[in-house]
């Protein structure tokens, strides 16, 4: 019983981390169809932004306030990644719409540059971000079942981020413009929507969400310049499995991969578990190439 609960919780926790790193990509790749290989580096930027916030609190603010740095670092890492994403869109991505191969190569190059930049500024070794003490320990559900606060916090953070994104995309005026542009660019332009502004905003928001993911990853362990490369494949896998263009698909995909992954790892071992998950995904995509949640509609005419 305890083991089942722990495994389920681990799966959910894994899924929440996957979801967080894939959410930004669900916007830039899922909605905008930009194969953004630098997505991992935007995560890395978010992580380092958290690291800098921590250091600033350490150096300039009384120790009693240190525990609160993490609360501030979430919006900080969002903003930093948002701005860098916006710069990236304005200076490069906008020339590459509709050219998937070119954007893949170009963003990969950007990824390498950003990694090297991080290495130059922060050094090659990993740096540690000290988690706030209020996230130490765990919630004791029953004997032998302790749910770490850090993981609970990440699950909460994912839920909050998701709700914010849903509200933005499906309830706000800007979100409506965004969906209109992504569905029918020409017609949206003919209605007076500035597609350029919508494109750069959308890409920047996707990047900003990647920054939040980076912030959350500092809770899981030390961070380094190549942090992003560990997660980029997982992120793409989640978005493709979930079905490109649908946020709901991304959620189901992430939780699905998280839970089945931990189960396979528990039954076999870590590396075989990963292989099995990957095989399942390949098989699934053979059966449903459009992913879990495909766009269904009686389209025009």
């Amino acid at each position: 019983m305890e083991i089942t609960i722990i495994q389920l919780f681990n799966g959910l926790s894994m899924g929440s981390i996957l979801l967080l790193i894939a959410l930004g990509l669900a916007v830039t790749f899922g909605l905008m169809n930009v194969i953004n290989m630098a997505h991992g580096e935007l995560i890395m930027i978010g992580a380092y932004a958290t690291y800098i916030t921590q250091n600033l609190f350490n150096d300039y603010l009384p120790a009693s306030l240190f525990n609160w740095y993490f609360v501030l670092s979430i919006p900080v890492s969002f903003m930093v990644a948002f701005l860098i994403g916006w710069l990236l869109e304005v200076s490069l991505i906008r020339f590459l719409y509709g050219r998937p191969l070119d954007s893949l190569l170009a963003t990969w190059g950007i990824a390498l540059m950003l990694q090297q930049l991080a290495r130059t500024i922060f050094g090659a070794p990993n740096v540690a971000v000290k988690s706030p003490t209020w996230l130490d320990g765990g919630f004791r559900l029953m004997d032998g079942v302790v749910l770490p606060y850090k993981r609970l916090f990440i699950i909460l953070l994912v839920i909050v981020t998701l709700v914010a994104m849903f509200l933005y995309i499906y309830r706000s005026h800007a979100g409506r413009r965004m969906r209109a542009v992504m569905q029918n660019r020409d017609m949206a332009a003919c209605l007076g929507i500035s597609t350029r502004r919508v494109d750069s905003m959308t890409f920047a928001i996707g990047s900003g969400v990647a920054g939040i993911a980076g912030c959350a990853l500092t809770l899981m362990g030390p961070i380094g310049p190549s942090l992003g490369t560990y997660y980029i494949v997982d992120a793409f896998m989640v978005v493709v499995l979930g079905g490109v263009g649908k946020l709901v698909g991304t959620i189901v995909g992430a939780v699905g991969i998280g839970v089945t992954g931990t189960m396979f790892e528990y039954w076999t071992n870590a590396s075989l578990g990963k292989v099995l998950v990957f095989l399942c995904i390949v098989a699934f995509l053979q059966w449903k190439p459009k992913g879990l949640v495909a766009m269904k509609t009686r389209s025009l005419d």
Binding site: R179, A180, Q183, I193, T297, S299
Partner: peptide
Amino acid sequence: REIFAQLTVYENVLL
């Protein structure tokens, strides 16, 4: 016609 197929009728008019 170029209606936004995934958006509601109301959202289409609002656009």
